[in-house]
C-alpha cells in the first residue's frame, strides 16, 4: 500500500506537540535524517527484543528452587521509524514471535504497547535498498500512522493529528517526490531469488563471497530483523535466566553439546546469514527476511556488502 493521499497537512509544531504527549523515541536512522527532540534507539528491535533481558529470577531457599517470572512492564511507547524498520517489525519480527503458537509473551506484551509510526524517506542513501526487497520509502504498510515532512509542514496519515487537507501545490510536491524516488529506486532482486539461492547452497562461489568477512556480529546486532537469541544463566544458587541476542556469525552459535559444530567454518556462517534472510525466510513466510535498511552495509568494518553477495549468488545460480 502506498500513500492514499487522503491524509492531512499539519504544522511541524503541532506534529511534534502530538508526539511529545507520550514516551516517544525515534530510531537512529530517523534521528540522523531529521533533527527531532526525542531520544533515539538503534532499531525497533532494540525496543521489542532488548539485547539482554531477564526472563525470570531464581534462587535456592528452603531446599527448593524458587522461580519468579519477570514480565516486561507494559508501558506504552511511541516509536517513529523509517518505513523499512516498520516493515522489519510487521513482516519479520511479528511473524517469528507471534506468527505461530506459542507466542512469545515478552515480545507480545511489548508489541501490544508499541505505537509504531513510519516517517517517510525523501531520498535513497548510498546504502539503502528497500525497493530491492519489496519495500518502499513511502510505504505506510503496518504502521499505526505515517508522516512525511513537506516544505510547508508535515503530511500525516492516521489518527490523532488534525490539519488541513492537501493543497494542490503540496499534492504536486508529493507526486514529484514519488516520481523522483521512482527514478532513483534500486531495482528489485529477481522474483525467484529465494529459489535460486536455495539451489545455490552447494555452489563453490561461497568461499569467495565469504572471504573478507571478519565474522564479527556487527551486521546481525545492528540489523532490524535479525532475531536470533540465546538463553544463558547468570548466577548459580541465585540469579536469572537472561535472554541475549546471538549472532549466526559467531562460531559458538551452532556449537552442539557433543562439541560437534555443523557450521564451524566462517564460510558456512556467512552462507547461513544470506540464505536465512533471502531464501529460507521468504520460502516459509513469503517475505524477505531483509528489509534493505542498509545498516549492515554502512557499518561493516570491511565493507562487506550483502547486496553484492546476493547478486553474485543469483548470477551463479542462473
Amino acid at each position: 500500500m502506498r500513500l492514499s493521499g487522503n491524509g492531512v497537512v499539519a504544522t511541524r509544531e503541532a506534529f511534534l506537540e502530538w508526539l511529545s504527549r507520550g514516551r516517544t523515541f525515534v530510531t537512529e536512522t530517523v534521528a540522523r535524517r531529521f533533527r527531532l527532540p526525542f531520544p533515539s534507539v538503534p532499531t525497533p528491535k532494540a525496543v521489542l527484543l532488548p539485547q539482554h533481558e531477564a526472563l525470570y529470577r531464581f534462587f535456592w531457599a528452603r531446599r527448593t528452587w524458587n522461580v519468579h517470572p519477570l514480565p516486561p512492564e507494559g508501558t506504552p511507547i511511541l516509536l517513529l521509524a523509517a518505513p523499512c524498520e516498520v516493515k522489519a517489525v510487521t513482516d519479520v519480527l511479528d511473524a517469528v514471535f507471534l506468527g505461530n503458537a506459542p507466542q512469545d509473551p515478552y515480545y507480545a506484551t511489548r508489541r501490544k504497547n508499541l505505537i509504531l509510526g513510519a516517517l517517510g524517506c525523501t531520498f535513497f542513501e548510498a546504502t539503502c535498498f528497500c525497493t530491492r526487497v519489496g519495500g518502499h520509502p513511502l510505504s505506510r504498510e503496518g504502521a499505526d500512522f505515517f508522516a512525511l515532512p513537506l516544505s510547508s509542514g508535515v503530511y500525516f496519515e492516521g489518527e490523532g493529528v488534525s490539519g488541513r487537507p492537501l493543497a494542490s501545490s503540496e499534492k504536486e510536491e508529493l507526486e514529484a517526490l514519488v516520481a523522483d524516488l521512482e527514478k532513483t529506486a534500486p531495482p528489485p532482486f529477481p522474483e525467484k531469488t529465494p529459489e535460486y539461492l536455495y539451489e545455490a547452497f552447494g555452489c563453490d562461489i561461497w568461499e569467495d563471497i565469504a572471504w573478507g568477512c571478519l565474522n564479527c556480529g556487527a551486521c546481525t546486532f545492528l540489523c532490524p530483523t535479525c532475531f536470533c537469541f540465546d538463553l544463558a544463566l547468570e548466577g548459580r544458587l541465585r540469579g536469572a535466566m537472561i535472554r541475549t541476542w546471538d549472532s549466526c556469525m559467531f562460531p559458538k552459535f551452532t556449537l552442539h553439546a557433543s562439541s560437534h559444530n555443523p557450521r564451524s567454518h566462517p564460510m558456512q556462517r556467512v552462507r547461513q546469514r544470506i540464505l536465512h534472510k533471502f531464501s529460507y525466510h521468504p520460502l516459509r513466510k513469503g517475505v524477505f527476511g531483509c528489509v534493505g535498511c542498509g545498516r549492515c552495509v554502512a557499518l561493516c568494518p570491511v565493507n562487506w556488502d550483502i547486496r553484492e553477495a546476493v547478486e553474485r549468488v543469483v548470477s551463479c545460480a542462473l
Binding site: R57, F59, H68, G239, I242
Partner: peptide, 11 residues
C-alpha cells in the same frame, strides 16, 4: 560495576 544489577539479588 554493579550498577544496574538487580536481577540477581534475592528478593
Amino acid at each position: 560495576l554493579r550498577e544496574g544489577e538487580s536481577t540477581c539479588d534475592t528478593p
